[in-house]
């Protein structure tokens, strides 16, 4: 793997970091398998790209993306809690609806940001190469996101979020409206996914309506790889594991793509297979470890 491929993988890993933190929040903390992110990640990209194109500050466009993703997630939460639609189905419905909405937002299948300002500009102007600026900025931002979630999950409301996922009867008996907690948390998770989408479109220079395909699988893969490698004994540890898992996942993909065995090499079209194998491997590894220890 070249140095550039390595930095590129880190950039992707940290840009997807917010998404992975969001997936951890729904999938692990709330026990709510949420596929909405396949639609909310490109929604964030679309909102950010369109906002920047029409002269909005790139940082403000991040906030707009966050808000748009939050609303999308709330829709899933409301479908699930207020109308009793199964969480998986509710999220799929929002996801496919978002495909059309994303096309409406952009007015075209994609929007390019060539020559437009991005959040990376200050670092690039300071003389950092693009291969260093993006991983650095996204790394710092996703660490801030991690600290923010760590704080949130330790507030009284955060404890209620954790308890809602683990024991709904208990938290209801403590006077908390579990429906509201679910709507807020799924909203937050999708806001984070949209933030990832916005960062990605600013570093890639374009938003594309198809950039969300497979987002949830990548997010789950990162969470599971992270848990397997770094553990999840406490909330802080699990959050850190999710973020590092995102970086490791992108590095593993980059490594696989740079692999050459004789005349055989992987192509980007093999990525889905590689991702599936990686997740299966991460799920099996703890079991194998246990079996070996039993002997």
């Amino acid at each position: 793997m070249t140095f550039y491929a390595f930095m590129g993988a880190l950039e992707q890993g940290f840009a997807y970091g917010f998404l992975v933190l969001g997936v951890y929040l729904t999938f692990r903390v709330l026990d709510f398998p949420d596929l909405t992110v396949d639609g909310s990640l490109p929604l964030g990209a679309a909102v950010s790209a369109v906002a920047i194109s029409s002269g909005v500050d790139p940082w403000v466009s991040l906030l707009l993306a966050l808000g748009a993703g939050f609303l999308a997630g709330m829709v899933t939460g409301i479908l699930n809690t207020k109308f009793g639609i199964l969480h998986l189905l509710a999220s799929i419905l929002t996801m496919i609806a978002l495909y059309s909405i994303n096309l409406r937002v952009m007015g075209a299948p994609n929007v390019t940001l060539l020559g437009k300002p991005t959040v990376l500009d200050p670092l690039l102007n300071a003389g950092l190469g693009p291969f260093a600026a993006a991983p650095l900025l996204f790394g710092v931002l996703s660490c801030l996101g991690l600290l923010g979630l760590f704080w949130l999950l330790h507030t009284a409301y955060g404890l209620a979020i954790q308890a809602t996922g683990a024991n709904r009867q208990m938290i209801t008996s403590q006077g908390v409206n579990a429906d509201h907690v679910i709507i807020f948390t799924v909203g937050l998770s999708n806001g984070l996914a949209a933030l990832s989408g916005a960062l990605l479109c600013q570093s890639q220079g374009a938003a594309d309506v198809n950039m969300g395909i497979g987002t949830i699988v990548a997010g789950l893969a990162s969470v599971i790889v992270g848990e397997t490698l770094f553990g999840c004994r406490s909330v802080g540890r699990a959050l850190l594991a999710a973020l590092l898992g995102s970086a490791v996942y992108r590095l593993a993909i980059a490594l696989a793509l740079s692999l050459k065995l004789g005349s055989f090499s992987f192509t980007p079209s093999d990525l889905n297979l590689l991702t599936a194998l990686l997740v299966v491997g991460a799920l099996i590894l703890p079991q194998l470890r246990r079996k070996v220890l039993w002997r």
């Binding site: 949130l152 507030t155 955060g158």
Partner: peptide, 9 residues
């Protein structure tokens, strides 16, 4: 019976 706010848990 009271709001679970954003104060430390």
């Amino acid at each position: 019976g009271r709001p679970h706010g954003l104060g430390l848990g």
